[in-house]
Design a binder for these strands. Structure first.
Length: 294
DNA sequence: ATGTTTGTTCCGAT
DNA sequence: CATCGGAACAAACA
């Protein structure tokens, strides 16, 4: 599940709890198919100190001494759990960083049921290369509605699909893209080509509102309980979903539509988020006679 | 049993 | 050649 709010929560908690620790050893699970070169580069990090923890898009980045960085991407079902050595085993453990600070020893366990998650060791240069592949940062103040509009217009697809594209704007996944579209009353199937600055502004505000609320609530844990924070605790944003998993629209009471859009389950209210641009056209522009090429 | 599932990457089609 | 969309990746659950 980890989308930006979940990754943010994990990264923030790690920063408070493991900065200053040193990597003492690393354990790999026998079934975890990690490439040998990554295993090797991880093993070279033994003895190094964790200087900082950061988030880049949906990646968690541990900054180590001497220009080394560990990047975790949790994909769909990845977890990072901070445990004491005596704590009972966790499910689906891929690898464990055993870290210490003085006499204090802790384990950072990277678990992943579906094994889509990734771990990578890079230097600053390669980290920057990875960072540069991502699009706008939703939470950064300097990201403007004009920037978003420009990126959206560069693609020929629907808005839902565009929001999921990390090269356009990074951090959103299926849940928060769905929620932000509902908040801004935009139909997920609306072509990005039809966007106006007014819509982009509204959308960016909704994205920020949604992400900030979810961060405050420490992310969302779905009924499958896959996402938990580093202490194994669920988030609470699922209690504040406005459309995701809903049957009835909170706002107007009509039946929520569920449809696969680009392969991803999407919830939307056909009344609050009409596809026809009849509502909210306060612009004086004449609605463009769109060619409906079939 | 078949169809779902929070993400990303790759490949084929256009 | 660039872009888009779907399949694949793997495992558990209903």
């Amino acid at each position: 599940m980890p989308e930006l709010p979940e990754v943010f929560t994990i990264s923030q908690d790690l920063k408070k709890n493991i900065v200053g620790f040193e990597i003492r050893s690393i354990q790999f699970s026998s079934y975890y198919r990690v490439p040998d070169d990554i295993k090797k580069s991880l093993n070279k990090l033994i003895g190094k100190k964790i200087l900082d923890v950061d988030r880049v898009a949906k990646n968690i980045v541990l900054k180590l001494s001497k220009d080394d960085y560990i990047i975790f991407h949790l994909a769909m079902t990845g977890r990072l759990l901070l445990r004491n050595c005596r704590d009972k085993n966790d499910n689906w453990v891929k690898l464990v960083l055993i870290i210490c600070k003085g006499d204090e020893i802790k384990e950072l366990r990277f678990c992943d049921m579906r094994q889509f998650g990734k771990v990578l060791v890079v230097n600053k240069e390669n980290l920057n290369k990875i960072i540069s592949k991502y699009g706008l940062s939703a939470l950064e103040e300097k990201t403007s509605a004009e920037d978003l509009l420009y990126n959206l217009k560069s693609r020929r697809t629907n808005i839902k699909n565009a929001l999921m594209d990390q090269k356009i704007i990074s951090g959103l996944g299926n849940i928060y893209a769905t929620e932000a579209l509902f908040l801004s009353k935009i139909n997920p199937k609306l072509p990005t080509r039809n966007f106006t600055l007014e819509m982009s502004t509204k959308l960016l505000n909704s994205i920020r509102q949604e992400l900030k609320e979810a961060i405050k609530n420490r992310g969302a844990t779905l009924p499958d309980k896959m996402y938990v924070d580093i202490f194994g605790k669920p988030g609470h944003q699922q209690d504040y979903f406005k459309i995701y998993l809903k049957k009835v629209c909170d706002v107007c009471g009509s039946k929520v539509e569920f449809e696969k859009i680009n392969g991803r389950g999407t919830y939307f209210c056909p009344i609050c988020q009409p596809l026809e641009t009849t509502t909210s056209n306060r612009n004086k522009k004449i609605p463009d006679g769109q060619k409906k090429l079939l």
